[in-house]
Deep mutational scan, measured.
Amino acid sequence: MPSETPQAEVGPTGCPHRSGPHSAKGSLEKGSPEDKEAKEPLWIRPDAPSRCTWQLGRPASESPHHHTAPAKSPKILPDILKKIGDTPMVRINKIGKKFGLKCELLAKCEFFNAGGSVKDRISLRMIEDAERDGTLKPGDTIIEPTSGNTGIGLALAAAVRGYRCIIVMPEKMSSEKVDVLRALGAEIVRTPTNARFDSPESHVGVAWRLKNEIPNSHILDQYRNASNPLAHYDTTADEILQQCDGKLDMLVASVGTGGTITGIARKLKEKCPGCRIIGVDPEGSILAEPEELNQTEQTTYEVEGIGYDFIPTVLDRTVVDKWFKSNDEEAFTFARMLIAQEGLLCGGSAGSTVAVAVKAAQELQEGQRCVVILPDSVRNYMTKFLSDRWMLQKGFLKEEDLTEKKPWWWHLRVQELGLSAPLTVLPTITCGHTIEILREKGFDQAPVVDEAGVILGMVTLGNMLSSLLAGKVQPSDQVGKVIYKQFKQIRLTDTLGRLSHILEMDHFALVV
């Protein structure tokens, strides 16, 4: 994948999101292997301009796509893939009243899908469409860049269908997702969380590099694949309309690839034109409109599966009536509230959605109805927002919020430890010299600072030695090549209790 991002070429006709291997024109390309080798690009942008032909009021008969309808489940399912879809609609009884809503608040519980998330729908649909058009064949390999849930859905379907599955996901995604993927037989590649989507090191860039190296491999490409919004247009939206008897006044959905909100909203605009569509985008993402909503100094966020630093091709923002931004604290607070007060075992993005819903639905009156999409299960986040310690460490809970008995030293300040200034190293000294210094002084790690004293990161003896043994660096290389740029900081005025929580999850903390 090139470091400079080429513009994806656009073909003359058809839909841009065809499933299957992508040609340089962004659509299915038939021909000899030699032709494909000559024409197939190194990668295709996940934010390529959409060429979708959908228009409100256009006859369904003019759609270029294969459409399906929700099917009634048999008493005995032939395999677990038949437990994807037909998820329950559940009334939220307490939270709406707590925040003064007059309307009825309903939750579409997508964590009841077989793999635990709304992404099971698009995973199965992308595979079925690729099999139907002859792209996927027995023994082929599926590769997908994902925040985890699409990966789980694909790995689940691949396990049943017999495909090899490789999932490329950023490091910030939970260990629970990784464990589930491994249990399903998927191979996992992790990428830096802070890598831009168009960087060769991003999950998108690495996935395309693997595709170019592995024979008979395919990126189904949830960011561009029409099967993504079509899955929701054909099934999720129809289920909502049936469950609500066609009567709903507002739908609120958090947005990642945009397939969920695009597919549902398009069908609702056709069948229930008075329904307002509300999009939820986390602070630090750029999906919301108008652009002024996205202006923030924050560039990272903890909530998973929603928000991006690019506009995915499948996201149709014209069908969203209003956007709201959400933050991590309210997302996790509301997710825990949904679990504790409503018994809905949902993930953090569901918290984002409901946090926005109780604001947006203030305009609705008694007798009206708001539906929220709860995308995934708490299963993926047992060591994250479900953990009091994690919430404390991230600053989303305060010590006084917890009532468990603490040891005698818990409320003492870090400054009472009488710490001395640490050994520091410059980023320009060599790895070999740094190892000598650390061994001589008896230290395992040291902060790396520039000549102005600005902290650049941390270097550890173990990481340097393993990097040297693996051949990633040489003793003569500058130590700046092996620094940890993500590390926890703590102030002298913070409590030892807070430091204790940090050290339970990290090997060190830097006192500043």
Rank of each mutant, 00 (worst) to 15 (best):
G100Q: 15
E239F: 04
Q222C: 01
K247F: 01
K30I: 04
G139S: 09
I219P: 01
I261Q: 01
T191P: 07
A157L: 04
H67N: 01
S227G: 01
E34P: 01
G100D: 12
C272W: 10
V189W: 08
A253G: 09
R182A: 01
K247S: 01
I219A: 05
G26I: 01
T260H: 13
N113G: 09
G263N: 03
N212I: 06
G185F: 01
D129L: 07
G258W: 01
S175C: 08
H218L: 08
P145L: 04
H203R: 03
G274M: 15
S63T: 09
G256N: 04
P145Y: 04
D179K: 04
H22M: 01
D133C: 05
R164C: 10
P46C: 05
C272D: 15
T141V: 11
E144P: 01
K119F: 03
K271D: 04
H67A: 07
T236F: 11
E104W: 03
A195V: 12
S175K: 08
P138D: 01
A237T: 11
G205A: 01
E62I: 14
K94L: 11
K177S: 01
P12I: 05
G162F: 06
N212R: 13
S254W: 04
L42W: 01
K269Y: 15
L136F: 08
P2I: 10
A237F: 05
V10S: 11
R266P: 01
H65S: 01
F197C: 05
E201I: 01
A265M: 08
I80L: 10
R125W: 10
L251V: 09
L241C: 07
L136P: 14
Q242L: 11
K177W: 01
K108P: 01
E144A: 01
P74C: 12
V160A: 09
E9Y: 01
P41L: 12
K97E: 13
S254A: 04
L230V: 15
M126F: 05
A8V: 13
T236V: 01
Y233R: 01
P16T: 06
F99Y: 15
K97G: 14
H65L: 01
E128M: 14
G96C: 13
K137H: 09
H203I: 01
G31V: 13
V180I: 06
G258A: 03
L268F: 15
R51L: 04
T193C: 06
H67K: 12
G96F: 03
G246L: 04
V160K: 01
S175P: 05
A231R: 03
G185R: 13
T13R: 01
H66C: 11
S32A: 14
E9P: 13
R182C: 10
S23E: 15
P46F: 04
Q242G: 14
Q242S: 11
K172C: 05
K137V: 01
S27Y: 07
C15F: 14
A265V: 11
E104V: 15
E34S: 04
A226T: 09
G100W: 07
N113F: 01
Q222M: 04
T260E: 01
T193Y: 09
L105A: 04
V204G: 06
S217V: 01
K82F: 09
G96Q: 04
K75T: 04
S254Q: 14
A130D: 14
I214C: 06
G259N: 01
C272V: 14
G205M: 01
S254D: 01
D129W: 11
G263H: 04
E213V: 09
I219Q: 01
R58L: 08
L268G: 01
D221W: 01
A107W: 11
A186V: 09
P6T: 01
V90N: 05
P41A: 07
S199V: 04
H66V: 10
L81G: 12
A114R: 06
T68S: 10
Q243Y: 12
G20N: 08
D133N: 14
K72W: 01
V180G: 01
L105W: 01
M173L: 06
L248F: 11
A157P: 11
Q55N: 13
Q7G: 09
K39W: 11
D129G: 06
E270S: 05
P273G: 09
T262G: 07
K30C: 05
S227C: 10
W54Q: 11
K102G: 01
P74R: 15
S27M: 13
A38R: 09
K97A: 01
K39F: 04
E104A: 09
A253Q: 09
D238F: 08
G259F: 01
K271L: 09
G151R: 01
R161V: 08
A71S: 14
R45C: 01
P88L: 05
G258Y: 08
H67Y: 01
K211M: 12
L230K: 12
T135M: 10
Q243W: 06
E34Y: 11
R18K: 11
G20F: 09
L156G: 01
K137Y: 14
A183W: 01
N113S: 15
I95L: 01
L248C: 11
Y163R: 06
